[in-house]
Design a protein around this nucleic acid. Structure first.
Lengths: 274, 274
DNA sequence: TTGCTCCTCACGTCACGTGAGGTGGC
DNA sequence: TTGCTCCTCACGTCACGTGAGGTGGC
């Protein structure tokens, strides 16, 4: 009844007769085909405004075909979105039933923009050396940036970033790239790069990613492994595939000191569907 | 940015610091885990209000499991709804590409309530006799209703209803039941029934249906067959199965006269999923 | 006189997006 | 002085659902 009043107001379905004294709306049986058409088009997912357009003009079959093709693409997207959400919920549920506790990690997909960086890449013999080595590499990166008059991004940006190029988890011979975000135009960077291209430090644009799985760890660096595991399981359960090196961004705290137990670290893993 | 303001207002994520002079909101890196949690829960389909509840209290794994189970059921329903809509759109598209024109029929699913009726059932030799026979049967139904002091429902209700009990379309030996909707309490009807149980007329409650496919035909009775065909195809393409006799409701016009060419007829077919 | 059904506003829904109009630091 | 970024209202979104307060016919 509220619906009929609304359709009247929208001009979709005016009553066949309105009593001038009581303002009562009277509908005739002949209006039922129109009502059925409205309901059928609504069932197809058209908005009332679109339905109003379709009803007020005579539509050529080709025009209808075009609208239906658009609707079909939209409907397919909606099905996929619903399936994705369902997969997420089921994965969480599976996790909670396996482990008996809810995971403290929340994994989220986001877009990441490309970013100019300076970096240096090394094979680290054993992960135990990682902490001190990265600390040293980043000091050297900063020194070099300084000499090249490249400005590291200030505090809201991550102050220490590592990329892990090994395709699987390993404790020895880890292929790691220490990275520093810098704010420079492409032009000035090319000039700086040309002057020092024999140097082990590289200037480049770190690729962006349309889909980046992101999780945040808070606590000791040693425990970051639990987040890695959680993210790999999540990526698997939600039917994604890893599409690039894992990024480790140190967001706050004494990032340079490996001993500190209150790190704030974001892990990013570029992913693709299927 | 509008989102952060909204989350602040909702109490979901208050800025770590608000400048008392400029009212600028400043967020700290330590708030990122909370933001990630909000986004992850939103991804699971929880409302912001639910998320607020989940964040303000410590949630036991079992409670979380319960909420996720509810969400899972909901998400499954959403997937099915989206798939149903997609099937509808694809069926329409298929139709328009086969026929080259858009069908004039709009088929809709609705619920139908049970209804007290009087009826009489016959095998009709050939469909050509249908018109006149039904006309006669309904006159007899009305006469009998009158004698029994049963009141037919007045005009907004269909004045002439037939049920087709044959499980498939046929032109000879059609099993048809002429039906008249009456307004009576169960009690008085039972009394009337007892007095005349030798009569070919029957008093009963016509079953309701949770899902009834409905289409409306306007024009000559001879063309109603096109609607029957369209509905059978629609039922097939949308993966439903027929769950009862086809109902033919005459809504307006000189329903009793088979010659009239401006009939308004609704066809109803009870359906079930799969 | 008492219910009953209809009516007309007006407001709420959900998670923001979008101006309008204003302000502090470069 | 001019942009720039932030701010605070306030309104719109989509298709109704839900009172509040009122009226005509039984």
């Amino acid at each position: 009844v509220a619906t009929l009043r609304y359709y009247d107001q929208m001009g979709l379905l005016k009553p066949a007769h309105v009593d001038p004294f009581t303002d009562y709306r009277y509908y005739s049986a002949e209006q039922l085909p129109r009502l059925n058409r409205i309901l059928a088009l609504k069932d197809l997912g058209f908005s009332l405004e679109q339905i109003a357009q379709l009803l007020k003009r005579t539509i050529m079959p080709d025009e209808m075909r075009g609208m239906l093709l658009l609707r079909q693409a939209d409907a397919e997207r909606e099905v996929k979105e619903a399936q994705t959400r369902l997969a997420r919920v089921s994965a969480r549920l599976h996790e909670i039933e396996q482990e008996g506790v809810a995971s403290p990690y929340d994994i989220v997909i986001k877009q990441v923009a490309p970013q100019w960086v300076i970096s240096t890449r090394q094979i680290v013999g054993h992960i135990d050396e990682m902490g001190t080595l990265c600390w040293q590499l980043h000091r050297e990166l900063r020194d070099w940036a300084n000499r090249q008059q490249l400005k590291p991004l200030p505090e809201p940006a991550p102050q220490l970033v590592n990329l892990y190029h090994s395709t699987e988890y390993r404790e020895t011979d880890v292929d790691v790239e220490a990275v520093l975000f810098v704010s420079q135009t492409g032009k000035r960077i090319e000039a700086a790069s040309a002057g020092k291209n024999a140097h082990p430090f590289e200037i480049r644009e770190l690729e962006g990613a349309p889909m980046m799985a992101s999780g945040i760890h808070q606590g000791a660096m040693a425990d970051v492994l639990a987040l890695v595991k959680a993210m790999l399981i999540w990526i698997d359960q939600n039917s994604y595939a890893i599409a690039g090196p894992v990024r480790e961004l140190h967001l706050a705290g004494r990032a340079a000191s490996a001993e500190a137990d209150q790190h704030l670290v974001e892990l990013q893993i570029p992913i693709v569907n299927l």
